[in-house]
Design a protein around this nucleic acid. Structure first.
Lengths: 159, 159
DNA sequence: CCGTATCCTCCACGATACTG
DNA sequence: CAGTATCGTGGAGGATACGG
């Protein structure tokens, strides 16, 4: 979205959106909360194109949400850790998680976001409510929207 | 962002992002929570181009987050009200609000999101912590990012 | 292994003009 | 007043190839 516009709005919500940036950033933050910190971890989990990942990672660093920490001198290697600001993003993620769980994941429940100190991480996959087993990623498509506003839907069909 | 990608991710967070859609949608929802329900209300408050507003509104309706309710027969007039799904988005908004307040609005505090039953609405402007008076919109620009990662910032300067 | 550089496509968003 | 129609643009996002 056009940032210049958002930036001028004197509203904390708009300001937040301005800082979060693009959608990938939210998913990257999700991964960070799951424990990922290195380039290839993010890439593997998200299936994001490497150039995009570079861009989004830099973006988050410049916005003070991630820290870029060198952990290897030669060759230079970095890991990306949540700053305090980034840590504080957790409630937003949880709110999204709950909303998604409640309305768009009727056939499963999600594992919870891990707390940093508790240690190991688990993937944010859904648990099938019948079998109790994890539903593998990409196993089936999203259920499309509700049947509501059939009228509008039809109207827009003519495009 | 590319929806097709998001839609396939078996994660409630990704699913939520898929449903929210673009950033304007979040701001529109914010307005809805402030009590706006008609086209011109949204447009006036958000300063969004009318064609965009049409598109985003339709989008939210098709996703089952807003309801399109005819309140006038001739000429046909509609208002846009939050569905149950839309109502449940409130915690996400509040999480954004808190995050923004905490980190990006050091010189002010924001009024709270109004609860539907409590009645009248107030704008999401900031309250100056010194004078206690509302800070008018667009009165000053966003403070730019933190000085952190000066190194990366410099590096990216060369573009 | 951890990214960067290049090139391309598509669509969110904007500006503006118009209509019942 | 409550939108629709048209046109234009930037940049998010993707594919791929390359580099240290």
């Amino acid at each position: 979205m056009q940032k210049a516009n958002l930036a001028n709005l004197q509203c904390p919500i708009a300001q937040s959106l301005e800082r979060v940036g693009e959608w990938w950033n939210i998913l990257i933050l999700r991964e960070a909360f799951y424990g990922s910190s290195r380039f290839d971890e993010f890439q593997k989990e998200l299936g994001i194109a490497p150039n995009m990942l570079t861009k989004r990672l830099n973006d988050l660093v410049l916005k003070g949400i991630l820290d870029r920490i060198q952990y290897c001198e030669k060759p230079p290697r970095y890991e990306y850790k949540l700053t305090k600001v980034g840590e504080d993003f957790r409630p937003v993620l949880l709110a999204f998680l709950n909303w998604g769980n409640k309305h768009f994941a009727a056939d499963g429940i999600a594992v919870k976001l891990i707390d940093r100190e508790t240690g190991k991480t688990s993937r944010p996959i859904l648990i099938d409510s019948v079998t109790g087993k994890p539903i593998s990623a990409k196993s089936h498509a999203i259920v499309s929207g509700p049947a509501a506003n059939e009228e509008l839907r039809k109207k827009l069909k003519r495009d």
